[in-house]
Design a binder for these strands. Structure first.
Lengths: 209, 209, 209, 209
DNA sequence: GGATAATCGAGACGGTACGTCACGTCTTAGT
DNA sequence: ACTAAGACGTGACGTACCGTCTCGATTATCC
């Protein structure tokens, strides 16, 4: 059950690790995930193939870590002042406005052509590979969703959200439609759509008396 | 620009086509999409490789057609009486109940282990390959979603749905959360969840006065 | 026990086979056997690696066949007139002279720099790999040695060789010393040495009365 | 041109050196020379790879030294009384009998399964690698052959060998046929064959008047 | 006897070649 | 003409070793 031989991570080459991240992200961006190969990543990074196989079980795992590293570096750069909070959802007192702000930002992020290829690749891989999917959810998705839970709980305290509503489900009502359109490319994903989703989700679909 | 040589589809072997469908579905179910190969499908179907390459552009296309064929055969079997409508969403007058019924069925379908692997494979492939994704949406997803539009329009006429609500968006509010949980495996996908989604979506998240 | 799958040799590409022979001999001549790789042969021959692996079990086997082919072509070119006899050992009636002629030719052949590398490689490989060695002996060595047996038998009939001498052993007494010097590079292999061996072997080492 | 850094051999670990010898010989015996790797030797000897690379230029060199060491230890054990002469060829006055005795012993040694694999490996390597071959001849082969020269010179003095016979050539006439059969595996190598070779070589092949 | 410098075990590293797998094209018989 | 079969050139796979390198942790002389 234990891995046949665990390499000594204290002797790992940081230079190679970073070069692999960079090469992986660049190649996926340039040629797409399918056409990106481990051999290609190794060659571009100036690294032996074995150095990749030593530390990662699959191409998808490499890309995942590269992604996490990218996110971590971006976060570190963006807000070194905010200790652990990183970037939360703002709370101006107006729940609908705050959610629209954040969901519009999400729309922009999803539509960013630079991020699109690697994100789609990683998501698709996670859909098929349960282990990778779990890691994707745990390390990338859940932390983001937790911010919504926090904001929605605050809204409940402020009386802007039904006290009996499960914030987790509420959040999915808001997020899932955007994800749906983006992943399946059914219809364009716009700011207007984000606003509509907030309005419909908060207000409900049935007529109010 | 035109394909170099269009094969004469009138001479096509039906026997081979069906064998390929069966082999493709069986192999994807047994070994997963990644490990399923065109050579493997050809061997299992007792067919030459060229017979596959002649009629389909890719492994994904084969699987897609196999899926459509499966769906068509299932439909034919289920309701030969209903002309083109296949099976619509029931209309008992109680919108919430009708939606819960259908969404629960959807939950069951998604949780069916037989369908899971091929559906995930096809969806994931469509997420990465835009062309295939479009086909997937057009041939498999949109027809299903149209049924919701029909039912929701009827509800609007009956005054059970806001007249200003866009049925297409409304439907996404209902469907997307299920898809989200299923695709990303964030949390279990249950009947209870389907019910909750219907309640939240119809009723809205903010307190009613 | 049977090979997992025997390829259909009737459909084998002659063009590829010849290109592989040429590439193998050229590379071994240029870079030596150790530095010659299957990948290199395939690349130089403009052939897929699998085409080599399909038809030969090892690098040594490729070289062996290339060698046999070379010998066959040389033989065909040299003497298409002589039906099956190819080139035998001449019989002028003077056994010593005939043997010296042939052994001097052997010395020249062994000292030919073009043949040296591949012959050494093949011999060395056969020394270590019994299976290959058997093939080497059967297909390359034994046919040559048989010519000596014929000539020595003729000498026996002519009363130039002891009637009780085993031609096979006699032949080894003549050939082995040359092979020994060539393989082990103990001392230079010259025409004079060949002559000496013939004289010593025929006349014996002990004083004649 | 000079080696970049000569290691200080006075600080060399004897324990490691011996462990490497043992491991090398054992592995070659067990798996053959080709499948024996430097990494494997290091692992089996409980030694760092660099310790091998520091002291030997190649796998063949390791095996050669291991062999020499083995021979030295065997000699030390066999005859600690005989100073430098080790074990010479006996001189009973009967040249033929003495040679048969020694050549039979050689036959036994060559047929010893324990020695076979490493000896073949070393010989084959020397056939291809001229540098190693020279070392093999100088350190292992020539000392043995010198014993024959000594014995044959004594025979000449005693009038049992032609005075004009070159002892070096004579020796090759005796040794080479055995080596030939052993290396090329053409025919079985037996005591009877050794006897025949001595008889043929001493007596010559042509009829005595 | 304590400093100091080389060797030691270990193993990560950039590479090369291995032998295998599947790709998509092409050729050959057979129906 | 389309089929089953499968050889072909191509290229990536994941593995095994190569020979170099960098680590502490022993040694083992020299001060």
């Amino acid at each position: 059950m234990a891995p046949h031989k665990a390499p000594d991570s204290s002797r790992r080459s940081d230079r190679s690790r970073r070069a692999i991240y960079d090469a992986a992200l660049a190649l996926v961006g340039e040629s797409g995930y399918r056409r990106t190969t481990i051999e290609g990543i190794a060659a571009r990074a100036g690294v032996g193939k074995q150095t990749i196989y030593r530390w990662w079980p699959s191409k998808a795992a490499v890309l995942m870590e590269a992604f996490l590293d990218l996110a971590a570096r971006a976060a570190e750069e963006a807000g070194p002042q905010a200790g652990g909070a990183e970037y939360g959802i703002p709370d101006t007192g107006d729940l609908a406005a705050d959610l629209k702000l954040v969901l519009r930002a999400t729309v922009d992020e999803l539509n960013d052509p630079l991020m699109e290829a690697p994100t789609r690749a990683l998501t698709a891989e996670g859909i098929v590979d349960a282990k990778l999917g779990a890691e994707f959810v745990e390390k990338l998705l859940d932390p983001q969703l937790a911010l919504y839970v926090t904001r929605l709980r605050a809204a409940q305290k402020a009386g802007q959200l039904r006290p009996d509503a499960d914030p987790r489900v509420a959040l999915e009502l808001l997020i899932a439609p955007l994800t749906h359109r983006w992943l399946l490319r059914t219809l364009p994903l716009t700011h207007a759509y984000a606003d509509t989703i907030v309005d419909y989700a908060l207000g409900g679909l049935t007529p109010r008396p």
